[in-house]
Design a protein around this nucleic acid. Structure first.
Lengths: 236, 236
DNA sequence: GCTGCTTATCGTCAGGCAGACGACTAAGAT
DNA sequence: ATCTTAGTCGTCTGCCTGACGATAAGCAGC
């Protein structure tokens, strides 16, 4: 079979960008990389990089994630494709189409800087999104889309557990919901809901007092992927 | 600012593929194009084409949609990005990344064939998906993802009205849900739900008997985009 | 040990919504 | 005239949620 005539279509660069979210100190945070070279030198950006010739998109995202954070997607973190951004002028140098991916990770040690980046950090998403000039390229838009995806997805799936360590308490899970949604939830109704949903949580038998107060039961994530009926996000 | 060194990244072809869904004769149907050239010559495929150099992804999808069906996205039809598919071997000729889009359209006259296609038709999605060899490339996967997106999205949004003509009855809207979900719904509970959700439907004042039986009120889609609480899909 | 503070967990109650289904309405078909 | 078809209004029951009282079991400080 003859290959395409290379002049018959325009060539694109294809990258993956990562919205890596975690919950630290009661706040939803995203991984940001300080750019070491133009354009947007010195500005914060989402981690990412070129897709390789023989690499699938999800593989490229997993590779970038490992390079930037040491996280492996199997290791508790959740990785999914978010959306693709291809405005002709989103990168001033050339035509770049970016396939953004969303990662939900438990609280991690301080990130290590990657290749061409001067530094990396966990930044509260409110800070990154409110300072309109904070993020390079169209990354504010990508981050906002990722945050919105995470906010809606923990309503009807068990993905909030991806923000938790392997074993966690109901209170810790509740604080994840509170940080991601930015609301306060009633601890008693939340406890009833999550323990009453079959397959969401399985008790490990252990307890912990690492949050202070009365000892709390420890749980692992159950097999159920979808919550039915969903967790209801309070109005406003 | 210097442009990238073109040898520093691999070039990709970027295309848009369209999952165009409609409801005809009580069945969920997708637009399929018969391929006029290799690879997969003579097989059915989703409509699509290359993204142009100066064109955003959504614009490319809208252009392809207009070329294949004459539909304009403003004109009742709904267009949204679905997902991006970039397996290195999804096209045997070269590295192609396809940004799939989902279109929900009202029942249309028979489609007209596009440029390199021998013919086009509305095919029931069950037929396209059950015959494993029916669709070219990875289009069966893309179609399945699009159908699943449509099925879940009409639960919590008012998008089912995109399958209806500008004015429609409650019964016609119910038949849309039944066709997309493949279930039977109770007409009385459905009527109570949709007419009781503020902003979902606005009566036009007219009535029609085009479905037979007692005259039914005509409605237009209201402004509300989200249904809260959602329409519940029956189990199984 | 006792007090107070923290967090966890159990229970109760009222309101809202969905599923099941009866009853009635109003057109066309035979 | 009767049947058939589809639309519309009500009723009842059970489940789930939100609001919130009450109790349990750790820790810190006195």
């Amino acid at each position: 079979m003859p290959p395409y005539d290379p002049s018959a279509f325009p060539p694109f660069a294809v990258t993956v960008d990562l919205v890596v979210l975690t919950v630290r100190h009661h706040a939803l945070c995203a991984l940001a990389i300080r750019r070491g070279e133009p354009p947007y030198q010195g500005r914060w950006a989402l981690p990412g990089g070129f897709v390789r010739v023989d690499e699938d998109l999800g593989d490229a995202a997993a590779r970038e994630l490992a390079e930037e954070t040491g996280l492996r997607a199997q290791n508790g973190a959740h990785l999914e494709q978010l959306a693709t951004y291809g405005d002709p002028h989103r990168d001033p140098r050339m035509r770049v189409v970016s396939v953004a991916h969303l990662v939900l990770a438990p609280d991690l040690p301080a990130p290590r800087a990657g290749g061409d980046a001067r530094s990396a950090r966990w930044a509260p998403v409110t800070e990154l999104l409110h300072d309109g000039a904070a993020l390079a390229f169209d990354h504010a838009r990508i981050l906002a889309d990722g945050v919105e995806r995470a906010r809606s997805k923990i309503e009807y799936s068990s993905l909030a557990t991806a923000f938790c360590p392997p074993e966690f308490t109901v209170g810790e899970l509740r604080r994840v919901y509170e940080a991601v949604w930015g609301v306060a939830l009633d601890p008693r109704n939340f406890h009833r809901k999550v323990t009453g949903t079959p397959g969401f949580l399985v008790p490990t038998g252990g307890t912990t007092t690492r949050q202070g107060g009365r000892p709390a039961q420890l749980f692992r994530a159950g097999g159920a992927a979808l919550l039915n009926p969903p967790m209801l996000r309070p109005e406003v």
